[in-house]
Design a protein around this nucleic acid. Structure first.
Length: 238
DNA sequence: GTTGAGCGTT
């Protein structure tokens, strides 16, 4: 486990938490522990993982016994390549008040680290001359991580409220929706009749002998459906 | 087999 036999958060009152970012999803606490322990007394290493998949989230928390050691580790391990990935080590903050953690002792010691990455600006632009880092950041794309993270967070915050969107009385709605989709498909099919080459139309003649409608509208099911006004054609009224 | 730009567990 990520914890060293601890069930909950260790004595953070006398420990300094470091946030390790940009670690590979395969990096485990056991891999980080020796690395960080070399620079100081590591009391705990914790790697948050996804609730659903259980995979690492790409960052870890390393707790040092002394702030000076933590600072040293930050200075030494920050930007270090671990498992083929450049990790980012910085003092972690548990909350908005984390700025004054450890009686402000950290604040004074982390003045350097703070100025370089504490500000979580949406566009850091330049760090301290880490152009390479900036280049990597070019990959920034909010796709899975964001949604996953938010989803997870919602699970925590919204635990009080029923966050079970799909539970009961959902089948009928879905079934109806599906039925509508079927209609739409039919409509589309009829629409594709306009293009004989369209893959939608399997063959010019259907199973119905008298399918050849003079009006050319085989979608007799579509017309009667007043609610299917749009499905037949583009929603945009010409 | 996997993603990424991000702050945590009782």
């Amino acid at each position: 486990m990520s914890h060293f036999g601890r069930s909950g958060p260790p004595d953070i009152r006398d420990t300094f938490s470091l946030l390790v970012l940009n670690i590979t999803f395969r990096t485990t606490a056991d891999d980080l522990f020796p690395l960080f322990d070399k620079y100081g007394k590591v009391v705990d290493v914790f790697i948050p993982r996804d609730r659903r998949t259980g995979e690492s989230r790409g960052f870890a928390f390393v707790r040092y016994k002394y702030g000076e050691e933590a600072q040293k580790a930050v200075d030494r391990l920050d930007g270090r390549v671990v498992d083929g990935r450049e990790i980012m080590v910085q003092f972690a903050k548990y909350g908005p008040n984390a700025e004054r953690i450890q009686n402000g002792r950290i604040v004074e010691s982390t003045s350097k680290a703070k100025s370089r990455s504490r500000s979580r600006s949406p566009r850091p632009r330049y760090r301290d001359g880490y152009k390479d880092r900036d280049r990597d950041r070019d990959y920034r794309r909010r796709s899975r991580s964001r949604s996953r993270d938010r989803y997870d967070r919602d699970g925590y915050r919204g635990r009080d409220r029923d966050y079970h969107p799909r539970s009961v009385s959902y089948s009928p709605d879905r079934r109806k929706d599906r039925g509508r989709v079927h209609d739409e498909e039919r409509c589309s099919q009829s629409q594709s009749y306009g293009s004989p080459n369209s893959p939608r139309s399997p063959s010019p003649h259907r199973a119905h002998p008298r399918d050849g409608s003079p009006n050319g509208h085989i979608d007799n099911k579509c017309s009667p459906n007043s609610k299917s006004v749009s499905p037949c054609n583009e929603p945009a009224d010409s």
